[in-house]
Design a protein around this nucleic acid. Structure first.
Lengths: 211, 211
DNA sequence: AGTTTCAGTGTACGCACGTTCACTGAAAGG
DNA sequence: CCTTTCAGTGAACGTGCGTACACTGAAACT
């Protein structure tokens, strides 16, 4: 017998690992990852401080695992947007709705990304930025599938970046006001996206001034 | 005689205060304000830890002073943009150029704002966000002076927010690559602003679909 | 049945932290 | 000239930190 019902060695270890990740995610919402101590996390999980080392070599390594986890959340979100219909006019409403749902459902992940993008340790910050850059590139290829002719790869990427930073700003607004029902925020987010899209639709057809 | 050349009581105190602010600004670039200790700052300045209390009651109070200082920088920047000419087509180039200069010249201030906006202590974060909201409102009234007819106050504010988050993103890019000459970044920033403006110019004249 | 593996324990260490308190000495003021 | 003010000193405290080391006991393997 190598695997039993719910208490094999590996299962127990995995459960503790999850508990550590969850505790770190929750505690770091108040202090930031940098202000997080190994001992706090251990106490929260219910293990002795030194047992932490059985799972991670340092807080930074824990942080990298949280980066992966948080971006899995984010990718699941755009997969949710894609699933359904690419109706060109419905896409704004659907994107905003999905963003709102995911940010509220996975607030810890989004808050982690927003926070550690600028603050915290250099290695975690670098990981977040790399994932964010990757995400921008993915969005750019998504945009390329829409009927926007004559767009250079460069312009697509710039538009993608604009959309990402706007949506991060919206996510930060949602995170800031947890209780308030966010219909006003959703309306503003819709307007923001629409403005960007109107700009995009009139982009290469209009400004032939630089070159 | 109440004031002498360069060593009156008040002057010496003010000089120490400045040294504390400068040291904190520099040290917090590596660790964040939250990861900053009173003892570190004191050692950097060259005073004994307890002398810190003669100037600030806590690190948080120091942080609030740095918020004020950093936003003075930011306001000086848009004053620089306004000074000169409001030539409608020149405004993008000038804005990007001034942004680039100021971010490089006052990198510590911009880095402080970008960092403490999300991370760090609750009170400092709240102060940064309030100042940022105020700044957005100022920009909105600036925009209202440009020839954009039929814009609601709400839409102006949304556009203002889009511009602010886009410019913060540009500032973060500049901060990220200190040595590299940022002509590529400037080009992309110009394109971003132009996209936003093209969107703005085609905004109320086009989408009459919602209401 | 006997041996190995290893997640978790418990103690102990040296260190940096914020804060307290009584102090010093020169500038400011009478 | 004598007194007050106050920026900066220096020693001491309790606390939480990361990490080391030797350990235990049950699951896994032979």
């Amino acid at each position: 017998m190598t695997e039993a019902g719910l208490s094999t060695r590996g299962e127990k270890k995995e459960r503790t690992r999850r508990a550590i990740l969850d505790a770190a995610l929750r505690l770091s919402e108040e202090t930031g990852l940098g202000g997080l101590s190994l001992r706090q996390v251990a106490k929260e999980v219910g293990i002795v401080p030194t047992a932490f080392y059985r799972h991670f070599a340092s807080i930074d390594e824990l942080g990298l695992a949280l980066v992966q986890e948080s971006f899995s959340s984010l990718r699941a979100m755009i997969r949710d947007v894609r699933r359904g219909n690419p109706q060109i006019e419905e896409i704004v409403d659907r994107s905003v709705q999905v963003l709102d749902e995911h940010v509220r459902g996975q607030r810890a992940h989004f808050s982690f990304i927003a926070r550690e993008r600028n603050g915290g340790s250099a290695v975690v910050r670098a990981a977040v930025r790399q994932e964010l850059a990757l995400f921008e590139r993915e969005l750019a290829t998504d945009l390329a599938r829409l009927p926007m002719d004559h767009w250079s790869a460069e312009d697509l990427h710039i538009l993608s970046r604009l959309i990402v930073v706007a949506m991060i700003a919206v996510a930060e607004e949602i995170l800031e006001l947890p209780d308030r029902e966010g219909s006003a925020i959703r309306d503003r987010a819709r307007t923001q996206l629409l403005m960007l899209i109107v700009g995009a639709l009139n982009w290469r057809s209009r400004p032939a001034e630089e070159k």
